[in-house]
Amino acid sequence: MQLSARDLMTEDVETVSPDDDVSDVLGRLARADFNGFPVVDEDDHVVGIVTQHDLVGLFETKDRTLWIPIGLPPFMETVTYAVDISWDDFDLGVDLVKNMDKPIKKVMTPDVVTVEPDADLDAILDLLADDERDINRLPVIEDGRLVGVVARQDVIRAIRDRRLAGN
């Protein structure tokens, strides 16, 4: 029996709204066990995806990144992206404050690769191993709505489990 997205997907998906602030999403991402969220509208239609890469890119200066505070001063949490910022980059603080209030729709990737629940394992593997895109999570869409997510680790676990079961 060929595995499908429905067999592999996680149904309880954490999502964000297009209007959520960057600071809120960074805080949630700092506590998550994964590296991105599907962005869904009020009808659960996927309108984008936002990843660590999208968010950290907002706070990079040249080849360095910085500690990104979460919330308002005094900052009680940080996202742990190590940094070395010199006083020459002091104006970065202004960019930091400006970007923290930005809505996710301004930084998300709107061109989302998705699958339907009956997509087979081979199609999923082709998408996750694509040389052009670095895809870790595939939203599963049924009747235009998000019903789950297939993560790269879900596929790896399923292949391992089948191997161990002798199939």
Rank of each mutant, 00 (worst) to 15 (best):
Q2I: 12
S4E: 12
S4K: 13
D7G: 04
D7K: 01
M9F: 09
M9L: 07
T10I: 13
T10P: 06
T10Y: 01
E11P: 06
D12M: 10
D12N: 14
T15Q: 04
V16L: 03
S17M: 11
D19F: 03
S23M: 11
D24E: 14
D24M: 08
R28C: 13
L29S: 00
L29N: 03
F37I: 07
F37M: 06
P38V: 09
V39N: 04
H45Q: 09
V46A: 08
V46E: 01
V47W: 03
I49G: 05
V50G: 05
V50Y: 10
V50M: 09
T51N: 00
Q52G: 09
H53Q: 10
L55D: 01
V56H: 05
F59D: 08
E60T: 15
K62W: 13
D63V: 06
D63L: 06
D63W: 10
T65G: 12
T65L: 01
W67C: 03
W67E: 12
I68C: 04
I68W: 02
I70K: 05
G71N: 05
G71E: 04
L72H: 12
L72T: 14
L72Q: 14
P74N: 09
M76T: 12
V79K: 13
V79D: 00
T80R: 07
T80V: 10
A82D: 14
W87N: 13
D88V: 04
D88I: 04
D89T: 11
D91C: 05
D91E: 13
D91Q: 11
V94G: 10
D95E: 13
D95T: 12
L96P: 01
L96C: 03
V97W: 11
V97D: 06
K98S: 08
N99E: 09
N99I: 01
M100V: 00
K102F: 01
K102I: 04
M108E: 02
M108G: 02
P110F: 12
V113M: 04
T114S: 12
V115N: 02
V115P: 02
P117T: 06
L121Y: 04
L121F: 06
A123C: 00
I124Y: 01
I124R: 02
L125A: 14
L125H: 07
A129D: 13
D130H: 11
R133C: 04
D134G: 11
D134W: 10
I135G: 07
R137P: 03
P139I: 07
I141Q: 09
E142I: 02
E142C: 08
D143G: 15
G148Q: 10
V149T: 05
V149L: 12
V150H: 05
A151I: 00
Q153H: 11
D154K: 05
A158I: 12
R160D: 11
R162E: 15
R163A: 15
A165E: 14
G166S: 04
G166F: 03
